[in-house]
Design a protein around this nucleic acid. Structure first.
Length: 282
DNA sequence: AACTGTCCCTGCAAGC
DNA sequence: TGCTTGCAGGGACAGT
């Protein structure tokens, strides 16, 4: 499932293969994928435009266009972005196709593919961010893009009386962490999901901060995680391999790789499957 | 204000 | 074998 590392991998692919290219044709097959602003706005906003950058905040991919507008892509659960030569057979659930004008005699297409249709493609005027993209405007701190220190973590956690896992998943607090990396981060920090964020000592916050940066950075280096039951791949169709580094996620019932004593426990927190080691995490 | 539960959607795997 | 059921989950939204 695309979280910060998977989204960052896709962003890099867009930067390498799509930025600088003019969009010569736009096809929208499924209107649900463009539900926020509608089919006409997306087609009108992208046709003839050139992507001039590919940035990311949390799980949002943001591309500046030479028209002054921005393209936003959110993969949600099952979204994928692929670039293939025009004429290549498109996979099922290809909902948006951007044809990239000919370069070196080759015409390519950027596909937005999304079986579960939670993902979306939006074109908007950045001056109207607060109105059109309130979720993006209220996004929390991105641990790899924004300034991120243990002190910032302390400020963000100060009034949080719920549990640590729900807080790590709250995109208004920190942006980019999803279910897999929340579990992996808490295991590295040796913290139980049930800890209360506002009660954590500065020493503990320093440990958590290190775990957040470490896990996300290593996962980005690995190209993200590709799980058995999902089809996450990068823009060239390549899998990530961070799943081989997972120490708790998807390992319920197996022996903990760190203490080699306890078996990984499984429970449901904030509606999400949660895996942790009861021996290592307190 | 902060937190919890529900819903959206499809593919896949387990169970009968 | 072929069906049904459950599960996966990001984030908006409604309700407490």
């Amino acid at each position: 499932m695309p979280e910060l590392p998977e989204v960052e991998t896709v962003r890099r692919g867009i930067e390498a293969r799509v930025v600088g290219r003019r969009i010569s044709e736009v096809e929208v097959g499924r209107e649900r994928s463009v539900r926020r602003v509608g089919k006409e706005a997306v087609i009108h906003g992208l046709l003839g435009a050139t992507l001039v950058s590919a940035r990311r905040r949390g799980k949002y991919i943001l591309c500046d266009l030479d028209t002054g507008e921005q393209l936003m892509i959110h993969l949600r659960m099952s979204g994928r972005v692929l670039v293939e030569e025009a004429g290549t057979e498109r996979p099922p659930h290809t909902h948006v196709v951007l044809t990239l004008a000919e370069r070196d005699g080759v015409v390519e297409e950027m596909w937005f593919v999304d079986p579960r249709t939670f993902g979306e493609v939006v074109v908007f005027d950045p001056a109207r961010l607060d109105v059109e993209m309130p979720d993006l405007a209220k996004l929390g701190v991105d641990p790899l893009v924004d300034e991120f220190t243990p002190e910032i973590l302390r400020e963000r956690f100060a009034r949080k009386r719920g549990n640590l896992k729900a807080t790590l998943l709250d995109q208004h607090v920190l942006a980019g962490i999803g279910n897999i990396y929340a579990d992996e981060i808490m295991h590295r920090a040796k913290l139980r999901w049930s800890r209360v964020p506002s009660s954590l000592s500065m020493r503990t916050l320093v440990r958590l901060h290190e775990a957040i940066v470490h896990v996300l950075t290593k996962a980005v280096e690995a190209g993200g995680s590709t799980l058995d039951d999902t089809q996450y791949v990068d823009i060239d169709g390549e899998q990530g391999w961070f799943q081989t580094e997972h120490r708790v996620y998807g390992r319920a019932g197996e022996v903990c790789l760190t203490c080699k004593k306890a078996r990984i426990s499984r429970t449901v927190v904030a509606g999400r499957t949660t895996c942790y080691c009861a021996h290592c995490q307190h």
